[in-house]
Design a protein around this nucleic acid. Structure first.
Lengths: 226, 226
DNA sequence: CCCGGCTTTGAGGTGGTTCTGAGATTCAGT
DNA sequence: ACTGAATCTCAGAACCACCTCAAAGCCGGG
């Protein structure tokens, strides 16, 4: 059980109506370092999946209110690409095919081994990280597709266009020193004030914490390596 | 248990799931002057390699969570160029080829001689030094890209612009005697005080220790050759 | 058109850096 | 040991890079 106490926004959504099983799943996955939300019927599951962002969803094939398969179909139709692991009570082949056709990324037949469940979730979580365009920044990530930064403590902060551009330039070459003049000429107009870069560094530090961008006095700025 | 030593001097990352072997490797390499972090599975190894900077990585071909080969492939795909030494239990030729194709710089078949391991790591480390812009200064290095000095004891001290310029001029030709007047006219205004160079030599000695810059009375200064 | 967030400017403060100069110290030659 | 020159040490002043932040202009969505 590797609990990665640092890399911590991985968010999971569990759609499971059996309270006992739901509780067990939530506990197990939380024990493995995930933040878990539980929805007890398809209606609530659909709503949560639409309104919040998760790394991975676990969906019971059979759900009250709206069937699990139906929930997944609707989500996919709405453009939600969150990785989905379908849980099915039936070993039936047709059932698995239905799930995958509906847009599931993997399926698991109940009853399952806990180890296998965790392994599958991990695998999907990993795929999520690779496919989203995430640039490591210190201990967090810069989310290229959403223009926001994912901090090591799990917070996600939205960045304005300029903030994002600056942070990206710094993050692409970690450890390198970027001369202030070079940053200024690359990101701003030549007529901009001398201190324009300083100001955005200040904004970024206010949002991300002061440890992220290091000043190298007389030379420029640098992404903190820790 | 991932050991977090401050990766200040030459930093190594060892990805090895066999705790006993991992401990032995870490001890051996630490004894040879390296700072070693250990990751016990591919997941953690990948994360560490992405978030921190190392000189050399040692990667076991077989790893839990994410296979060693897969870890390396992902790292290379993300643009991580850190030198990688692949450890493989199999003498199989195909296996070595796989490793090198995945982006390994060298491979080593278990069981191996400790001397050979250290020699290989040293070789890769030296290559790293060449690519990072490191100029030897006494027993330490002048880090051209970071504008700081890396002392033999592992400390890194920030240098001001003038300190850095002076040290660089001295370091580029080790052993040569640089006349004080030449240094003064090259680095300072003609109107500067006569003793301006002396002052900066003093500052440098205060930061780096007194053994680094040698005075050649009547002529000038020189980098200590040891 | 109005509002709210984003962008940009510029003023004011802080602290590190540069540089001078002067006294203390070391050295070579006598 | 003496002496003048070279060098070391260091405090203080001026300077400059950087930080902080308020305020004004800009721009786009409701």
């Amino acid at each position: 059980m590797t609990q990665d106490s640092r890399a911590e926004p991985p968010g999971l959504l569990v759609m499971e109506d059996d309270g006992e099983l739901a509780g067990m799943l939530a506990g197990l996955l939380r024990g493995n370092g995930y933040a878990v939300d539980v929805a007890e019927d398809g209606q609530r599951g659909l709503h949560l999946a639409l309104s919040r962002r998760y790394n991975v969803m676990l969906i019971d094939r059979r759900l009250p209110a709206i069937d699990g398969l139906e929930v997944l179909i609707r989500l996919r139709r709405r453009g939600v690409t969150t990785r989905a692991l379908m849980l099915t009570a039936l070993g039936d082949l047709a059932d698995r095919v239905d799930g995958l056709n509906a847009g599931a990324d993997d399926y698991l037949v109940k009853p399952f081994e806990v180890d296998e469940l965790v392994a599958r979730v991990r695998a999907l979580d990993r795929r999520f990280l690779d496919e989203a365009q995430l640039v490591p920044v210190g201990d967090g990530f810069l989310d290229m597709s959403l223009h926001e930064a994912a901090l090591p403590d799990g917070r996600r902060v939205a960045l304005s266009r300029r903030e994002f551009e600056l942070l990206r330039v710094l993050a692409v070459r970690p450890g390198a020193i970027h001369p202030r003049n070079q940053l200024r000429s690359r990101l701003f107009e030549d007529t901009s004030a001398e201190s324009i870069v300083d100001t955005y560094v200040y904004y970024l530090r206010r949002k991300l914490g002061s440890g992220v961008i290091r000043t190298v006095r007389g030379f420029g700025y640098q992404i903190g390596t820790l």
